[in-house]
Amino acid sequence: MCLAIPGKIKSIETMYDGLVRMAKIQFGGIMKQASLEMVPQAKVGDYVLVHVGVAISIVDEEEAKKSFEYLEQIGEIDELIEHTQTDRNDLPSINSSKSQSADGA
């Protein structure tokens, strides 16, 4: 449960009147939301290490890709997929959504 998984920030939105930044993050074929509160400098297109729904550091793209491949290979990504399929309770709804940038960055 202590693993952190690297993913790419696809878009950023804010909640709580702009106080909290939440991102849509792509992990291979899966998209999940995560808080960017611990990585204030992170921007769309950056790779971040995500642990239980919170990005904890920004990582180099090459490194992120290799490490994701490794996690996939040893089956650690399965857990992420499982939770994505089974839980309908997604992350907090984004109230005052002010999208900083769209997809494809």
Binding site: S35, G53, L80, D87, N89, D90, P92
Partner: peptide, 27 residues
Amino acid sequence: RILYSPLEAVKLAKDNPDKQVVFFAVG
């Protein structure tokens, strides 16, 4: 319920005002 993130539990609490939501915060 099994959750991926404690932040999901907050959302669950918001959606279920008549229930008490407790997250078992280990780590």
